[in-house]
């Protein structure tokens, strides 16, 4: 069994225009930078992208938006991207805004083999429009369907040749449940190791969910909001 591919271009070589992709990350934290760059190089378009955010104007999924590769975004928050807002208001881009927990859980449902789940978020709002409502124990819930993605593309900290993955800090976010949800899952990792090097107790994503893995390079890891505190306390 060898899931290792040489690089991002090889990993995404059979992604075609019109497909549905899941892309991990929260803001610019934990995004699959190498695969996004490869998708931009490949020039596929008409994509439906499921991702919590849409990057910023010049990084992350924003790079794909610039090239007009995205037909539809399914996200919870897209506030950091002016080009996104422009394409949306002009009607060039479709968007389906989904509550963040619902987005995560619809990915999770796919990875657990559940076709749909009943969720509380959005009851009584426009999110509920067209959805089945069912009452459990006196409370209304919305029927939310699992996502169906051709490819899931995730970023992990460490991974082995069998596809077992470990994420770092809050770069975990949507990556584990998206990794479980793709028909084909591609993982890019900062450090690719041999089987046995990861402690089985601390693996977040079992390799059964991962089809292709490669060690990425030249990670920028941009920070969106650099916030710091002074080294010396005030008045010291």
């Amino acid at each position: 069994m060898n899931k290792v591919v040489a690089n991002a271009d090889e990993a995404i070589k059979d992604i075609e225009s019109g497909m549905t992709l899941m892309l991990g990350g929260f803001g610019l934290c934990g995004i699959p930078e190498n695969c996004i760059a490869a998708l931009v190089r490949k020039g596929v378009n008409n994509l439906t992208c499921i991702s919590n955010n849409a990057g910023v104007d010049d990084f992350g999924i924003g790079l794909m938006l610039q090239q007009k590769q995205v037909k539809k975004m399914i996200s919870s928050y897209v506030g950091e991207n002016a080009e996104f807002e422009r394409q949306l208001l002009s009607g060039e881009l479709e968007v389906d805004l989904v509550p963040q927990g619902t987005l995560a859980t619809r990915c999770m449902a796919a990875g657990y083999g559940m076709p749909a789940v009943y969720l509380l978020a959005g009851v009584g709002t426009e999110v509920a429009e067209g959805k089945e409502v069912r009452n459990f124990n006196g409370k209304d819930y919305l029927l939310e369907e699992a996502f169906d993605a051709d490819f899931a593309i995730v970023k992990a900290w460490k991974g082995d040749r069998l596809g077992n993955l470990i994420y770092k800090d809050t770069a975990r976010n949507f990556n584990p449940m998206m990794a479980m949800a793709g028909k084909i899952t591609i993982a890019e990792v900062e450090e690719l190791v041999e089987p046995g090097e990861l402690d089985p107790n601390y693996v977040h994503t079992p390799g059964i969910y991962v089809h292709r893995i490669f060690q990425g390079s030249n990670y920028e890891k941009r920070i969106e909001q650099r916030t710091v505190r002074p080294r010396t306390p005030k008045g010291a």
Binding site: G27, L28, C29, T170, I223, E224, Q225, T227, V228, R229
Partner: peptide
């Protein structure tokens, strides 16, 4: 709290995308 200057970690942010 926010990190000291120079100790920001891009893998460690809050929901407002601030380094923490």
């Amino acid at each position: 709290p926010f990190p000291f200057e120079g100790e920001e970690d891009p893998d460690l942010i809050n929901a407002g995308k601030q380094t923490i």
